[in-house]
């Protein structure tokens, strides 16, 4: 009986301790998830615009019978877009790190 009484008196402290523990584990989990997300995101975001540019360029070249003119131009634009995406993703990651600190 005394034991349970003791339990009740420090219940607030125990709840706070548990909440803190949960918050730490949640933060660690979200950091791991973020790592995976960033790892797969950056590579795909760099390559995808180049592929899209080449595909659209190929279709335009077929339409206008212009050999590889559009494909070349849009591949260069795609490369630029890929670099821009990686830069933005890196900026976002930096922001996330600052926020978590």
């Amino acid at each position: 009986m005394r034991e349970s009484g003791k339990d009740i008196t420090d219940i607030d402290a125990r709840i706070a301790q548990l909440k803190q523990k949960q918050a730490i584990s949640k933060h660690q989990k979200s950091q791991t998830a973020k790592f995976w997300e960033n790892a797969v995101r950056v590579a795909a975001e760099f390559v995808a615009p180049i592929f899209v540019g080449i595909s659209i360029g190929y279709l335009l070249d077929k339409c206008f019978d212009t050999r590889i003119f559009f494909m070349l131009i849009l591949a260069i634009f795609g490369l630029a877009a890929g670099m821009l995406n990686v830069y933005r993703a890196a900026k976002q990651m930096e922001k996330d790190i600052h926020r978590s600190e």
Binding site: E45, A48, P49, F51, V52, G53, I56, L74, F77, G78, A80, A81, G82, L84, N85
Partner: peptide
């Protein structure tokens, strides 16, 4: 560049 980035 931005259009390709969106479509990608």
């Amino acid at each position: 560049v931005e259009t390709l980035s969106l479509l990608a």
